[in-house]
């Protein structure tokens, strides 16, 4: 059991928190047909971090966060610029920008041989959930021991703060988010500030992606932005219930994925563990697959004319 505390508790909590946070925001991304903005932003976190490392020379969390944040803002600004001034269709504009910035990141990494310092492409993509070890977590009593708690990996607190912030945002901005997602022209006419809401949503996505990046890598973030919310959409026609379903799905895939990756191979006789981030992403995809096949509201209603 002490093993669990030391090795598994923190990664599990981090994975669950990130999954819940991403899935919460994902509801709005999926409804606005902007799912891929999460994909784009997650890809550019690496270049931001590499750039900040090259400039500041440290791998301090704050410098990395700022670097990734700047990269995300630059990406969003460039996408908007190319979309509006260059009149390029939005998904193509997204594809142009995030691939180019990602390429720049990889080039900077290889050019300066920064790969030596635990920064590499693989880490960026699938994170290192398993490295979040709580050395002081030797016994259940450690949970109440301030000294032991101080030793918790810093990612845990970071992820928790971001989760809290996103939750607050969604609660406070619920109505503008809903109205703007459904009918942005109407939202503008009642001064619900759809453009501002849109921007804040993207900023929240960026912050979440960046906070998650270090701990769990980008692939799980992309999966969690899209799959649980998409699966939830197929379960219900009610927005509140959709959000609830997405949280349930995110929780199930995070917990089950972590357990399967860590202990699954052992059950079939292999002495190894698999990537937890990859397993969580795969599981949430599996849930979506099941929802696509059996979800009660999987098909469009089709606007059948009922009698007036």
């Amino acid at each position: 059991m002490a093993d669990f505390l030391m090795l598994s508790l923190v990664p599990l909590v981090v994975a669950v928190t990130i999954s819940l946070t991403c899935a919460l925001l994902g509801n709005f991304l999926v409804l606005r047909r902007q799912s891929l903005i999460g994909d784009a932003i997650s890809h550019v976190a690496l270049p931001g971090i590499v750039a900040s490392f090259l400039i500041t020379g440290t791998l301090a969390a704050s410098a990395m966060m700022i670097g990734a944040g700047v990269a995300a803002l630059v990406t969003v600004a460039m996408i908007e610029l190319i979309k509006h001034l260059g009149r390029v269709e939005s998904s193509a504009a997204m594809g142009v920008v995030f691939t180019a910035i990602f390429a720049l990141g990889v080039l900077m990494l290889e050019w300066n041989d920064a790969s030596g310092v635990h920064l590499d492409v693989e880490h960026a993509l699938y994170g290192n959930l398993e490295s979040l070890i709580w050395f002081e977590g030797v016994h259940w009593s450690s949970l109440f021991d301030p000294k032991a708690l101080a030793d918790l990996p810093p990612q845990l607190a970071r992820v928790a703060w971001v989760g809290l912030m996103v939750l607050t945002f969604v609660v406070v901005a619920w109505r503008p988010l809903v109205v703007g997602s459904f009918d942005s022209a109407f939202a503008a006419s009642i001064q619900a500030r759809p453009v501002l809401t849109d921007l804040l949503l993207v900023i929240m996505v960026a912050i979440t992606a960046i906070a998650a990046f270090d701990a769990v890598g980008s692939i799980i973030v992309i999966a969690m932005f899209i799959c649980p919310a998409a699966a939830a959409r197929l379960m219900t026609n009610h927005l509140g219930k959709q959000v609830a379903w997405s949280q349930v799905f995110a929780l199930i895939s995070a917990v089950l994925g972590y357990v399967l990756a860590g202990y699954g191979p052992g059950w079939i006789g292999f002495e190894a563990s698999l990537s937890a981030a990859g397993m969580i992403a795969s599981l949430t995809g599996l849930i979506l697959l099941l929802a696509c096949l059996f979800g009660p509201h999987r098909r469009r209603d089709g606007g059948q004319p009922a009698s007036a």
Binding site: V30, R33, Q34, S35, L36, G38, D39, S91, L125, Y126, I219, I220, I222, A223, F225, I226, C227, A230, R233, L234, A261, A272, S273, L274, S275, A277, G278, M279, I280, A281, S282, T284, G285, L286, L288, C292, G295, H297, R298, R299, R300
Partner: peptide, 25 residues
Amino acid sequence: TRLGEDAAIGAVLSTLFGLGVVLIT
């Protein structure tokens, strides 16, 4: 399904990539 192509693309790419990562490990 009622999901848009954007969600379909994102779901497929992240899930299959995740599966690939599991296989790498």
